[in-house]
């Protein structure tokens, strides 16, 4: 009995001490936490923001166009004659904090926004299933008021957006994002519109190859039944094409607006399934201002 006990004791001491260095190496990596990166290729899924932020000390410049609806045919060259443009600059103050400014030609709208990363999807020791980013923006349209007889205030021009972007990269190919949103407009165009509009967005991408992906996006808006008949929810399908330094996003969508307070509220959205389809694209280029390598 004692012999067995001693043998076991000696055996255990030997196991503890006489370990192989390859086991030591493998042991070093067991505890490592692996953050999931590149859930989406761009900071936008199509029209709406994705959970992706701009890296620290990087500047992202995006030019976007949406053309007129294609159902007018050749008379306006399938909408190409009528285009809206958005110029966007966004900068990563921190890896978890992005600031951005936009200028859209529609209603001469300016907007500014912040994006904060709250949670990062990871595997390993502390596995987290989703990434969460908070997005908030304010928008101001600067076109002249057409209703001159009404009292028009500066505050009437403002809209605010709050979004919680919740995304999961399921595997190397598939990423999905759920986007609970609130849009507040100080002034709404008609009695049917709501000052506070709640919406839920669903977006996703599926990679065909490492540099080519299919994307889709839809927002469901929560309105009264009478009101929902009058508006079309934003819908879009597209592709992401990545070259060395650029990301090209080509899309078909039912909106020509490229800021949240515009396309979610839907006053100018067309009916996608009755030919109200707009072609458009985003092109983005990232510049690095990192000093240290």
């Amino acid at each position: 009995m004692k012999t067995i006990f001693l043998l076991i004791f000696v055996l255990i001491t030997n196991i503890i001490y006489a370990q192989d260095i390859d086991d030591l190496l493998d042991g070093e990596f067991d505890n490592s936490n692996n953050y999931v990166s590149a859930t989406f290729k761009s900071t936008r899924i199509i029209n709406a923001n994705s959970i992706e932020l701009v890296k620290k000390q990087h500047l992202n410049f995006t030019i976007s166009h949406r053309f007129g609806s294609i159902n007018n045919g050749i008379s306006d060259f399938f909408g190409i004659d009528r285009s809206t443009i958005r110029l966007n600059l966004e900068y990563g103050l921190k890896d978890w904090f992005t600031v951005g400014i936009d200028r859209s030609s529609f209603s001469q709208t300016y907007d500014g926004y912040f994006k904060f990363r709250l949670l990062r999807q990871s595997t390993g020791k502390w596995a987290i299933p989703v990434s969460i980013t908070y997005f908030t923006s304010f928008e101001v349209f600067t076109r002249k008021f057409t209703e001159a007889e009404r009292d028009n205030y500066l505050s009437s021009r403002l809209s605010y957006v709050h979004q919680l972007l919740i995304a999961r990269k399921f595997n190397n190919k598939l990423s999905l994002q759920l986007t609970p949103s609130l849009v507040h407009r100080n002034l709404v165009p008609t009695a049917l519109d709501m000052n506070d509009l709640y919406a839920v967005g669903l977006g996703g991408r599926y990679k065909i190859t490492n540099r080519f992906a299919i994307t889709a996006e839809y927002f469901y808006t929560i309105r009264s039944p009478r009101s929902s008949e009058a508006y079309n929810n934003p819908i879009a399908i597209g592709v992401d094409i990545e070259t060395g330094g650029h990301v090209f996003q080509l899309m078909l969508t039912n909106t020509s607006l490229m800021y949240e307070g515009g396309f979610i509220t839907g006053n100018n959205n067309d009916n996608f399934f009755k030919g109200g389809i707009h072609f458009g694209f985003n092109i983005s280029r990232t510049f690095s201002f990192t000093k240290i390598k």
Binding site: I21, D26, S32, N34, S37, H58, N210, E242, G244, K293
Partner: peptide
């Protein structure tokens, strides 16, 4: 022996780093 976590490679350009990892 050596063990290297690929994601710990740092590039000057973050986009390049993402492409290195992803593509």
């Amino acid at each position: 022996n050596f063990g290297i976590l690929i994601k710990s490679f740092k590039f000057k350009n973050a986009l390049m780093e993402e492409h290195f990892n992803e593509n």
